[in-house]
Design a binder for these strands. Structure first.
Lengths: 195, 195
DNA sequence: TTGACAATAGAACGAACGTTCTATTACCCT
DNA sequence: AGGGTAATAGAACGTTCGTTCTATTGTCAA
């Protein structure tokens, strides 16, 4: 009950607020959040966080989180089969929004149905981010309209001719006759378990 | 050059600012962003966006994006093999941060190495979100320490006994002898192409 | 016990915030 | 051309922001 305020605890309180309200708390709000009675105390701690590089102030003096918001520790690698390296957190904080979406203007999301890319690890129900501005390269996973049908396939070039291959032996390669409209290149796959 | 301001264009301008600065612009800043000369014009448009449900105001009167920040249109399903439904955007906006991370306090991220879960669509290099608070259920993908080794496997219960199975025929099922420490349940998989 | 430093409290202040009002300009439809 | 609505401009206003100052309390070591 008598927890002392530390840089970490303050950071956590702010991160929680940020997650819930999607904005930084005001100093007045932080008076409540930190359970203190004066804004100058808040200022005292905020200055500490800024000095510690946890928060930044932009040119206008507004506070903003230095690292993107979500505050998930990035632990290391699971060697699926090998012993793991560091169990405890070399905590790198990351935001999937920033990580996944490099070109927000030209990207969109699709939900996958069908199993034609199953061997690429893209399963029905997965979400894929499609970048429509990107030029498809050999081997890329693309979304394309071939002869009136929309599909997700590997983009393969063989001697000038374009062939679309599924990542599933049950689907034969497609050689587009007349029209091949590439909607975009798949740049990310997201799957969520337990709804 | 003479683009007209629309609800959409204003939304986009704000979303861009939000992405860059991780906070809402002030009305004064929006004067510049929207290329107008008065805050009342800003107010005019902001009211429109609020009425349209694109922005919300919280109890304190602060603006915040109604939907999480990132602004990617969610188009529909790629029928990998079937014709696609709507090509044009039934735009649903989403943030992967919120979508993926339901329990930030008890989750962490791991990078996958090894191919033991390949048939589950989890490939080397993928990131997985692991929830350490969750009770593993039959069939869940879990990260666990078995006899001193960290692995990612299916969690299977067969008559009281726990068996860990890989999603790869090349790996035999593991029957933990002494210790089975479940580090957590995999709740999401993220893969990014092109670095 | 006392001294030094860290942490908290409280008040005061200017600046910037979002709001609101009135007035003017641009656009479209008939 | 006219008339009506949508969009913009500009100024004024009360509120609240973050900052800063001084004063008080708490904590630990000598």
């Amino acid at each position: 009950m008598k927890e002392k305020r530390t840089v970490e605890s303050v950071e956590k309180v702010i991160a929680d607020f940020l997650r819930k309200n999607r904005r930084m708390p005001t100093y007045s709000e932080m008076v409540d959040l930190l359970d203190v009675r004066s804004k100058s105390v808040v200022n005292f701690w905020i200055s500490k966080l800024v000095a510690a590089g946890i928060l930044h102030k932009d040119s206008k003096g507004f506070l903003k989180p230095a690292r993107p918001s979500l505050l998930l520790p990035m632990v290391g690698e699971v060697a699926a089969g090998f012993p793991s390296p560091a169990e405890e957190e070399l905590r790198d904080i990351m935001s999937f929004d920033e990580y996944l979406i490099t070109q927000p203007d030209s990207s969109f999301i699709l939900k996958v149905s069908g199993d034609s890319m199953i061997d690429e690890g893209i399963k029905p129900g997965d979400l894929v981010i499609v970048n429509r501005g990107k030029e498809p390269k050999n081997g890329d996973v693309i979304v394309a309209e071939v002869d009136g049908e929309w599909t997700m396939k590997y983009f393969k070039k063989k001697g000038g001719a374009v062939i679309l291959e599924a990542a599933n032996p049950r689907y034969p390669p497609v050689k587009p006759r007349s029209e091949l409209r590439v909607a975009g290149v798949v740049t990310a796959v997201i799957r969520k378990y337990h709804q």
